[in-house]
Design a binder for these strands. Structure first.
Length: 589
RNA sequence: GGGGUGGUAGCUCAAUUGGUUAGAGCACCGGACUGUCGAUCCGGAGGUUGCGGGUUCGAGUCCCGUCCGCCUCGCCA
C-alpha cells in the first residue's frame, strides 16, 4: 500500500505516530514559511503542513502544489496548538507535519473544483463526471447506495431468498415500454431486447420451484427521461411462490422498516398504512399522493350544481366534478397574477381549462365569480372547505381524471412553495385495488393497468365475464413522498384466466401463443400460485439522500436526451459493424 | 412530438430603452507573507457572448433557424 492511513482517520490518539497519506489537494494555503494543505480522499480531509525550518527543498515543492494534484506524504501526526483546532473536520484536532512529499500525479487545472463551494451546471458536471464524483456529497450518495443495497441483500438472505441472475439479452415483447433492441449477428434480421424488467423470467423461476427469488436487476426502457427516470435503472426485484397478496406486503413492510432503521436509525411503525386506489384519487387526485401534508381535495359538486356560475353548473350537468383545495392562510400569498397566469398554466398542462378561486374575507367569499353564489351557497362552501379568514380556495371543474391530475399538481406545488411539510420525513404507504384494465377507446380494447400477468382481485372474478372495467387487480404500489417506490402484483397462474385476460386485451390465441407461448406453456406444467414486486432502488437512494434527482445517485447517468456527455454514447459505428449485423441505416441528413 | 427555462472568461454570475474598450468573485500566472483552515495583500494574463443567418450607423441585448443542459405534458404494461 502507498499509504498507512486514510485522510479521514487521524485523531488525537494517533499523535506521535508516523503516517503516510495519499490523496488529492483540496485546498492550499501558502504562507511562504509555512504551507497548509487540506488533503482529501474518499474518507475525509486532513490538514498537512510543511515547515520551512524543517526542510526547504520539500517546502519549495509543496508551494507549487495545486488543486487536484495527487500526492503522497509521510510525516508525524501532531496535535494542533490549543485554539487552532478545526471543528469542521473530523480530523481537525491533529495535523500531519510532512517530512516527505511525492507528487504522484500533477493535475491540469480542473474545469471546476469539487469543493462544494459552487456546484457547476449539470452539463459540465456530466462531461467531467470523474471530477464531479470527487465531490463529497456525491461520494456520500454512492456510499449510501452501497449500504442500502447490502441491507436489502442481507434482509432477503435472512428470509431464504435466493439472488438469481436473469438474461440481459431476451425476447422483445411489444407491450409496455419501448424496448432497447440489440441486433443479432448470427440470426439475420432478428433482435434481442434488453429487459424492461425480469418479469417473465422471475415468474418462470417460480414455476421452477425457486419459491423465494430476489435480484438487484438492471432494467432498460427506451422512453423519455424525467428527474426520476433514467433509461437504465435498477430494481430490487422480488418474487415469491405459495403466497397471497398480504404475504408479499408483509415481507416488503419488513424491508422498508429495515432500510429506514439501517439508514436513518429510526424505528418505523408497521404495518404500513394501506389505502385504495379510489381513495387516493378521490382525496388527493393522484395514485401516488404525497402524504407528508394534508390539503386534501374536497368535492363541492352539490353546491356547484345549484349556483349561477356557468362553468360549475355545466360541469355538474355533464356528470363531471368540481373539487378544490383549501390553502390555509393563502389569500395574501398568491396574487391575482400568479393565480390567473402561473397556476392557470399549470392546470392547463393537465387539460384543465381554468382555475377558479375565492379568498375567504369577512366571513364571505371574495372573487370575480363570487357574485354567482348566494350567501347560503357561499356559507356552504366555506363550511365544507373548513374555510377561515385569510384562506384561499382553489377549484378545478372538469372530468374526474382532469380535475384529479390538475389539482394534484396544484397541491404539490403549493405545498412545496409554502413549505407545508418537513423534507426529512418519509411517508410510506400502500395503494391497493387498482383497476385491472383501463379502456383504450382508440383501439377499442382493454389495456392492462399493471401488466397482462396480473391476477384478479378475489372478490371480482365474477365481473371478468360481465363487466371487465369493474374488475380490480390484485396489485399494489408502494408510495413514498409522492414517488412510486415499488409496484407489484399477485400473478395469474391459471392458463385459462390468462387466456381470458388476453382476449379482453384483444390478443388472439394465436398471437398470445406466438408472443408468450413459452410462458403460457410454463403455466401448464405446474405453476404454483405466486406474486412479487419490484422496488426502484435509485428512487429509494434518492429519497434517503433527500435529493430530487435520480442522476445524483447514479455514478454515470444519462442526460435527458439519453446521452452520455462524457463518453459520447450513443455514437456512430463502423460501416463494417453495421454490415455484420445485416442492417441498413435510414437517417435524415 | 408539445410547453417552459437557460447557454457571456476554466467555474459561478453581472452588463440600463440596442450605444465607449463586455465587468466582478473564485480558479490560473508572478510577487509578499511562519498558524492558516472559503487564508490575506499587491500585480498580471484570460472572451468565437453555444453555433449559423438576418435587421441596424451600431447586436451579449431585437428577429429567424439550429445545437446542447434542465423542468414538464404526452410517453413510461
Amino acid at each position: 500500500m502507498l499509504r498507512t492511513r486514510t485522510c479521514g482517520e487521524l485523531r488525537t490518539s494517533h499523535v506521535g505516530e508516523t503516517a503516510t497519506l495519499c490523496g488529492w489537494v483540496d485546498k492550499y494555503r501558502d504562507h511562504a514559511g509555512i504551507v497548509f494543505i487540506d488533503l482529501r480522499d474518499r474518507y475525509g480531509k486532513t490538514q498537512i503542513k510543511f515547515d520551512l525550518a524543517d526542510n526547504s527543498e520539500i517546502q519549495e515543492l509543496a508551494r507549487h502544489l495545486r488543486y487536484e494534484d495527487v500526492i503522497q506524504v509521510t510525516g508525524e501526526v501532531v496535535a494542533r496548538p490549543a485554539g487552532l483546532e478545526n471543528p469542521k473536520l473530523d480530523t481537525g484536532s491533529v495535523e500531519l507535519l510532512v517530512r516527505d512529499l511525492k507528487v504522484l500525479n500533477k493535475s491540469k487545472t480542473p474545469p471546476f473544483e469539487p469543493d462544494g463551494q459552487s456546484v457547476p451546471n449539470e452539463d459540465i458536471r456530466l462531461k467531467h463526471r470523474y471530477i464531479d464524483l470527487r465531490r463529497p456529497s456525491i461520494q456520500q450518495n454512492l456510499i449510501l447506495r452501497h449500504r442500502l443495497t447490502k441491507v436489502v441483500r442481507d434482509y432477503f438472505d435472512k428470509l431464504d431468498f435466493l439472488e438469481i441472475e436473469t438474461p440481459m439479452l431476451g425476447r422483445s415483447t411489444p407491450e409496455g415500454a419501448r424496448d432497447y433492441l440489440v441486433p443479432s449477428r448470427v440470426h439475420e434480421g432478428t433482435f434481442y431486447a434488453l429487459p424492461q424488467s425480469p418479469q417473465l423470467y422471475k415468474q418462470l423461476l417460480m414455476v421452477a420451484g425457486f419459491d423465494r427469488y430476489m435480484q438487484i436487476a438492471r432494467c432498460f426502457r427506451d422512453e423519455d427521461l424525467r428527474a426520476d427516470r433514467q433509461p437504465e435503472f435498477t430494481q430490487i426485484d422480488v418474487e415469491m411462490a405459495f403466497v397471497e397478496r398480504d404475504d408479499i406486503l408483509n415481507v416488503i413492510d419488513g424491508l422498508v422498516a429495515e432500510m429506514i432503521q439501517a439508514i436513518r436509525g429510526e424505528q418505523f411503525q408497521l404495518p404500513l398504512r394501506r389505502y385504495t386506489h379510489a381513495y387516493c384519487l378521490e382525496n388527493y387526485g393522484s395514485d401516488k399522493p404525497d402524504m407528508r401534508f394534508g390539503m386534501q381535495l374536497i368535492d363541492i359538486g352539490d353546491i356547484a350544481g345549484q349556483c349561477e356560475f356557468g362553468v360549475f353548473k355545466q360541469t355538474i350537468a355533464a356528470g363531471n366534478r368540481v373539487r378544490g383545495i383549501n390553502v390555509k392562510g393563502g389569500a395574501d400569498k398568491y396574487s391575482r397574477r400568479i393565480l390567473d397566469v402561473d397556476m392557470k398554466a399549470l392546470v392547463a398542462d393537465y387539460g384543465a381549462k381554468g382555475l377558479a378561486y375565492f379568498k375567504v374575507t369577512g366571513g364571505k367569499l371574495e372573487s370575480s365569480i363570487a357574485k354567482f353564489f348566494t350567501d347560503e351557497q357561499q356559507q356552504a362552501i366555506i363550511a365544507k372547505m373548513g374555510g377561515e379568514e385569510g384562506d384561499l380556495l382553489l377549484y378545478v371543474a372538469d372530468t374526474f381524471k382532469v380535475s384529479s391530475s390538475a389539482l394534484s399538481a396544484v397541491r404539490n406545488r403549493i405545498a412545496r412553495e409554502q413549505k407545508l411539510f418537513d423534507p426529512n420525513t418519509m411517508e410510506v404507504f400502500w395503494v391497493l385495488d387498482f383497476p385491472l384494465f383501463t379502456w383504450n377507446d382508440d383501439e377499442k380494447r382493454f389495456d392492462a393497468e399493471h401488466h397482462p400477468f396480473c391476477s384478479i382481485h378475489p372478490d371480482d372474478e365474477q365481473y371478468l365475464a360481465t363487466d371487465p372495467g369493474r374488475v380490480r387487480a390484485s396489485s399494489y404500489d408502494l408510495i413514498c413522498n409522492g414517488y412510486e417506490a415499488a409496484s407489484g402484483s399477485v400473478r395469474i397462474h391459471d392458463p385459462k384466466i390468462q387466456q381470458r385476460v388476453f382476449e379482453l386485451m384483444n390478443i388472439s390465441n394465436e398471437e398470445a401463443e406466438q408472443r408468450f407461448g413459452f410462458f403460457l406453456d410454463a403455466l401448464r406444467y405446474g405453476a404454483p400460485p405466486h406474486g412479487g414486486i419490484a422496488l426502484g432502488l435509485d428512487r429509494w437512494v434518492m429519497m434517503f439522500t433527500g435529493g430530487d434527482n435520480i442522476r445524483d445517485v447514479i455514478a454515470f447517468p444519462k442526460t435527458q436526451k439519453a446521452a452520455d456527455q462524457m463518453t459520447g454514447a450513443p455514437s456512430e459505428v463502423d460501416a463494417r459493424q453495421i454490415r455484420d449485423l445485416h442492417i441498413k441505416l435510414d437517417v435524415k441528413e
